[in-house]
Write a protein that binds this DNA or RNA. Structure first.
Lengths: 115, 115
DNA sequence: TTATCGTGCAACCAACGGTTGCGTTAGTGG
DNA sequence: CCACTAACGCAACCGTTGGTTGCACGATAA
């Protein structure tokens, strides 16, 4: 149901920043990204490898540069998963809230469905 | 702007599963959770420590048990942050899509603002 | 009191994010 | 053509973290 690979790819704060930068600048290289981040080029390169492996970016080698760009479709998919998890938890929180209110009113509601 | 502690707490797949279970069962102990997860009690205990540290759960020691429950407010805050990041990326993706369409129509739009 | 259940603490291991150092390749200029 | 520089990849190393096993300790049940 949940693609843990996508999640953990997006779970790292540095990788989120990288996606932000790639989106803002319309692409970039390991070197260009490392200049805007508090980590070395090598660290950025490893992260780009991770992002590439899960399809969130794709690379175009041109001369001595390797330009990376965000894959819009895949990122949209990741966003959808974030929203999905958020929606699930939101729903459960609201259900719990309703039950709590019902109990407050003295109606103990022992037969609630759960799952 | 983004609370990285909350993010990374929720970023771990096992911790997400734990939150799911705690929400579904209305609370639980390290032992009860470990029975429904593919990890040992000690691993669960460590995760509960992390979740407790960022305020996503709170504990009630009763006898020889330590019962954990989800903190609804804090989880709601985490959900809000997920949505916020999702919304940001969504907006950028749509902006890029619009620009791409504009270029397709031959209107090169070199003066678009970015950031 | 003795046995058992739930915890906590400590040591250890593998994976990961990060760094430094070095070798390689593609452009650039004398 | 040859030297130099820029961007890159690879490898070794370190600290943190998710996970395990083993053990000792307090609370309950027999």
């Amino acid at each position: 149901m949940i693609d843990d690979d996508l999640w953990s790819a997006v779970g790292d704060p540095t990788r989120r920043r990288m996606l932000d930068l790639l989106l803002a600048d319309g692409g970039g290289t390991a070197t260009s990204l490392s200049e805007q981040l508090p980590v070395t080029r090598q660290a950025v390169a490893k992260h780009l490898g991770v992002l590439d492996r899960v399809g969130l970016v794709h690379v175009t080698p041109t001369g001595r540069e390797r330009r990376y760009e965000v894959d819009s479709d895949q990122l949209a998919r990741a966003v959808a998963q974030l929203s999905a998890v958020g929606a699930t938890w939101d729903a459960r929180l609201q259900r719990i809230k309703r039950i709590a209110e019902r109990i407050q009113r003295g109606k103990s509601d022992s037969g609630a469905d759960h799952s």
